[in-house]
Design a protein around this nucleic acid. Sequence first.
DNA 1: AATTCCCGCAACCGCTTTCAT
DNA 2: AATGAAAGCGGTTGCGGGAAT
Length: 192
Amino acid sequence: MLNTRINHQEIEVRKGPWTMEEDHVLINYITVHGEGVWNSLARAAGLNRTGKSCRLRWLNYLKPDVRRGNITPEEQMLILELHARWGNRWSKIARQLPGRTDNEIKNYWRTRIQKKLKQTDMIQYKSEMVPDNNSMSISQGNYSSSTLSDYSEPNLTTSQGSCGALFNTESIDSFWTIDADFEPSMQSLHGH
DNA sequence: AATTCCCGCAACCGCTTTCAT
DNA sequence: AATGAAAGCGGTTGCGGGAAT
């Protein structure tokens, strides 16, 4: 745990991972008093944390309606779709996924999806190097945020319906089969 | 068994936007 | 309208744990 002295009054601001005790203090305080001005809240609750830190901890992990882990296939598709529309507007994307936070979606994108996209790029690159390569017809599925990120505000329909405008079924299949991890997801999406 | 490498994620940092005065 | 404080946001970092060697 890192402590930072912020002034001559020897007040130390705690940084780094939250302890269970700190979590309890924050939860109890907000349960009784509700959310408020975060800097004041941090002081009033007796937490030697910045308001920013308290806000982040509450919104991303402690708030009762936060859902964590196990991104569903539907959520995966929605994240893909919305990122294609809006780019890295994580908080905006998160608002379309009840219970999910911008931080979680951002991490999910960077650690899972972005990695797959890089692999897809490599495969496409290789296929372009071989002129008559019919077996690697993923070019339509090659997801490029630079070409897809300029969509205007979406008229959000069902995931499947609006996805069709951006990814046809064939291209989605090509994208997801890059990694066997995602096969169950696509199977359930396709209903088999 | 020990060490190194890699990956996922929680949390921080800095910038921008919003709000109150 | 100007200004400062707080909140919001996206990018990045660093730690912990598991996999690989």
